[in-house]
Write a protein that binds this DNA or RNA. Structure first.
Lengths: 198, 198
DNA sequence: TCCATTTTCTAGCAGTGCTAGGTACGAGAG
DNA sequence: CTCTCGTACCTAGCACTGCTAGAAAATGGA
């Protein structure tokens, strides 16, 4: 009996952990959806708790605080971004076209999902890139950039070139929102930038 | 007597307006200093009021809300930035060196005064650039960029080139903070970027 | 000295992130 | 089937935020 009880115990524990992981995902998804629908200001712990149909303290049994939730959304966003960058890059054989497709995919991602992009690049600060604790999702996105940039690097250091191009795209993406760049010249800016790097 | 009274009235009104303008400036300066010392999270209406030695509602007799104060700090920041850009640009005769000096001044400004830079480019959204309500301070900063970029534009449209280079510098400045770029490669990134635009 | 107006402050509202306390539920033992 | 007991959960509340209505005080003019 005791052995049966123990086996049952384990399976119960497994079920609980499964339910926990499920609810974890539910919270992150709800936060992302709420942010994308109404902006991050609308993502309060109360509204989030209401949305997942639990009380506020449940959030704190999964995440250390609100920032940790935003961070989880950001990491999820990096998975999504990496996928899009890879699809764009591998769809072309010519290095120039592949790089252009990657740039288009990047700025398109930032433009169509501004709240998610903010979580990834504007809001959070404790998601560093170059250190040993950098999440693999960030490394993967960097890897896509590196793969697209290396063929056109020429004499330049590919890693530095990645940083330069990524920054340039990031700058265009963020300044474009907020009305700081002429909206109808988006293509012209990408043409001009990439024309100098191909 | 009534004429004397009226003259006095006017001078009193002028004194009051002078005092009001003085206090306006005091609030903006206090907000900027507090933000630069402890970050924008520390800039609460209560702390700000305490710092200028008035009660909270006084802030709202000068500004519509906290956002308006941040906005005023940003506009003041644009005056400062413009001055630095002009000094850097006009210190060199060669267009290439002038552009490089401008880029150095820009990234240096962003790095040494991150809170002010945030108010100007990251926090606020209702400071648009290309419209008719664009504050003259923003136009002036843009003008410095245009003056530095035009000589090296070649066949490219100077205005588009300004947007591309400004975005590239903005991207490097913002990603550099937050540890998303290798700190010791700052010069290499600027070299690589400007090498393609000279 | 008194009045009127303008300026300033006190007190409070609704909302925020977060947490301590008690409550209810469900698994295992008898 | 009932009784513990530990876990999971929620209610209530804290200190704080931006902002505002109404009372209080200061100021200029008769």
């Amino acid at each position: 009996m005791s052995s049966t009880a123990r086996i049952q115990s384990v399976s119960i524990q497994e079920r609980r952990e499964r339910e926990r992981a499920e609810r974890h995902r539910l919270i992150v998804d709800a936060a992302r959806e709420l942010a994308e629908a109404e902006g991050w200001d609308a993502v309060t712990t109360r509204r989030l708790a209401e949305r997942v149909e639990y009380s506020q303290p449940v959030l704190y049994s999964h995440f250390k605080g609100k920032d940790a939730i935003v961070r989880a959304v950001a990491v999820q966003g990096f998975r999504d971004l990496t996928e899009r960058l890879r699809d764009a890059r591998t769809a072309h054989r010519s290095p120039e076209k592949a790089l252009r497709a990657l740039a288009d995919a990047y700025t398109d991602f930032a433009a169509t999902r501004p709240a998610l992009y903010d979580a990834m690049f504007v809001r959070e600060v404790d998601l560093s890139f170059g250190t040993s604790e950098t999440p693999p999702e960030l490394r993967a996105a960097y890897g896509e950039f590196l793969a697209a940039v290396t063929p056109v690097a020429g004499d330049d250091d590919p890693e530095t070139l990645v940083e330069v191009l990524w920054s340039a795209l990031h700058g265009q993406a963020t300044l474009n929102r907020g009305g700081r760049l002429r909206p109808d010249h988006h293509r012209a800016r990408l043409d001009l930038l990439l024309g100098r790097f191909s």
